[in-house]
């Protein structure tokens, strides 16, 4: 409907592109629609709540989480299957979203964004008046 996950090339940041010495990872997201809002869930394991930054500007929503890269504190790695680094992803959000009321929560490695629809696009029942 009104939300579109921008492709990596549009976002100018691909999943493991090296920028300014660090790597960005594009979190996997699920987007679904409820009657009054859109909900975005992003897989961001290992992030810290106070290091997640969400910005909304000019119709684009940016998720960025800072992660400290993997430290070899527990000895050398014999298997490294996932990357550890910042998460970054952008979304195009239409005017049908009330940007001032966007809220977010982070639980069990998943960031959940609530994007409330504006009053104008919310479904409503129209009373039919008889004369």
């Amino acid at each position: 409907m009104t939300l579109e996950a921008t492709m990596p090339q549009e976002a100018a940041v691909s999943p493991t592109e090296h920028t300014r010495g660090g790597s960005y990872y594009r979190p996997n997201v699920d987007i679904f629609e409820l009657p009054g809002e859109l909900v975005v869930k992003a897989d961001m394991p290992g992030a810290k709540m106070d290091e997640i930054d969400i910005q909304f500007e000019d119709g684009s929503l940016v998720i960025h989480a800072h992660l400290t890269t993997r430290q070899d504190t527990q000895g050398p790695f014999s298997r490294k299957e996932y990357g550890v680094g910042d998460y970054y992803r952008t979304f195009r959000v239409s005017e049908q979203i009330d940007a001032s009321r966007i809220s977010a929560e982070y639980t069990a490695g998943i960031l959940t964004l609530h994007l409330p629809k504006t009053e104008a696009v919310k479904p409503r029942k129209i009373q039919v008046e008889g004369k």
Partner: peptide, 15 residues
């Protein structure tokens, strides 16, 4: 990852 005496396994299991 491993040290002389330990082995540590991390698994990504969000949600």
């Amino acid at each position: 990852s491993q040290t002389d005496t330990t082995v540590t396994v991390h698994a990504e299991l969000p949600g």
